[in-house]
Simulated assay, not measured.
Amino acid sequence: MPGQLPDGDAVPADGALPDGTALTGRGFGVYVHVPFCASRCGYCDFNTYTAAELGGGASRDQYADTVLAELALARRIVNPPRVDTVFFGGGTPTLLDPDDLGRILEAIDRTWGLAGDAEVTTEANPESVTPESLRRLRKAGFTRISLGMQSAALGVLAVLDRKHTPGRARAAAREAREAGFDHVNLDLIYGTPGESVDDFAASLAAAVGAGVDHVSAYALIVEDGTRLATRMRRGELPYPSDDVAADRYLAAEAALGAAGFSWYEVSNWATSEAARCRHNLLYWTGGDWWGLGPGAHSHVGGVRWWNVKHPSAYASRLADGHSPGHAREVLTATDRHVEDVMLRLRLSSGLPLSALDAAGREAAAHAVKDGLLEERDDRLVLTLRGRLLADAVVRDLLP
């Protein structure tokens, strides 16, 4: 089940931002959270709900209208020059009718205006799309799709409680290309209990063979409160191994590199600069975004806030004409510096050496000597070994 929201300062009923808040000028995106899933995967603690978990408290059929109500509130609060990226995440956005997704996208365009080259992404489970639904999504203005493949091994999919067959993700990727999507991503998870070297090699080969231009690969994280965590606590499954995860990462880098993919963020590879996920890059480089939907997070000019989690509470707040914001925080200069170092160092473009204080530069010199970082044109870039230890490298660079 979804975890708890953090505490913070109260959000005013009208959602107004603190006086003096201004856009950063680093781009503006919109995230749309769709909190519905046909079933819950054993590893998932995202803010998503099956029909049984929702009960009668929220309606999938009315969800688009509820999001539009938040968008109307947002229009009174922030006025970006344009929307550079839109990302529909979840949950499973493609459980909504393509017309509803298109209606939300059209309203975003009416409200703030989509840039002429705006990237518009939806996440999807492979079994939640068809050639017809993909054509309708493309016609509605979606340019990119991210498919939750996770693995091509039947046993691994079973441990993760995934419902699609091993070959469905590859077929869905092909159908998306045929529908005219400019960019297609496949998500992989590695380090699942029982996954063999051959299982992951087959997953990488299937992803490459699907003809996609982007692959994301993440180590399995076991979250408290999930079915997977319960099974491990009972001793039914072993806990993931850090050594195995490192070996899998090296296998991903080798296989994807050989197929013409280059890393641009620690967990993301693309065949070209154009294939990189611009929406995620906006997050990683300190841009602004408005998150629509229950539990969605937003950031504008150093102010970060998050909505109430449950779809019923979210709909009720908006029906009363109130902001659905649960709480917010104003980031200090130190907060922003920490996040800037933490996120930019994960990128292949690296972190400017000038972003560090004297102690940080001294720590960076040690990391270069240890083979974790390399210096390129006064920027610090993680080496392959450094990518395996990225969190530790970041900790050493910060006060």
Rank of each mutant, 00 (worst) to 15 (best):
E329A: 14
G29W: 00
R75S: 14
G286A: 09
L157E: 02
E375H: 05
T130C: 14
M149W: 02
A58L: 09
T122S: 08
A206C: 13
A363D: 08
W112Q: 04
R26N: 11
A392S: 14
V78P: 01
P193F: 03
V197L: 14
G8V: 10
L220N: 01
S298G: 10
F181I: 09
I145R: 00
G293H: 03
L384H: 13
H183R: 14
D99V: 15
R227L: 14
T92E: 06
R233E: 13
S354P: 07
T94V: 13
L71T: 10
F261V: 09
L95E: 12
A158L: 13
D7V: 15
G295H: 01
T143R: 02
N268I: 04
R75K: 15
L397C: 09
L237T: 11
V11F: 04
A172Y: 02
V308L: 11
T48P: 02
G211H: 10
P399K: 12
K139A: 15
G180D: 11
G291R: 00
L228I: 11
P35T: 13
V129E: 02
P81C: 08
F46I: 14
L188N: 02
V184E: 02
G89K: 00
D161T: 12
P126H: 06
A327W: 04
T192Y: 02
E265A: 13
G194W: 10
R138L: 10
A252T: 05
Q4C: 14
A173Q: 03
V368K: 02
S262C: 12
D377L: 12
E329F: 03
R170E: 11
D340H: 07
G225H: 07
V212E: 00
R385S: 12
L96Y: 01
L134E: 05
A217P: 02
V86W: 00
T21A: 05
D97F: 04
A172M: 10
R174D: 07
P98Q: 12
A107F: 05
H326A: 14
L331A: 11
D99Q: 15
L23T: 08
L186V: 11
V303G: 02
E175I: 05
L157Y: 07
A365F: 09
D199L: 10
W263Q: 07
V244S: 07
Y218A: 13
T226K: 03
A315S: 09
T122N: 04
S316K: 10
R361H: 12
P324D: 09
L382F: 06
A205D: 15
T143D: 10
P93G: 10
A207H: 04
T230E: 14
V120F: 01
G257D: 10
W284S: 00
A251G: 14
D370T: 12
F46A: 06
E375I: 12
E236F: 13
A107N: 05
S262R: 12
L356A: 13
W290Q: 01
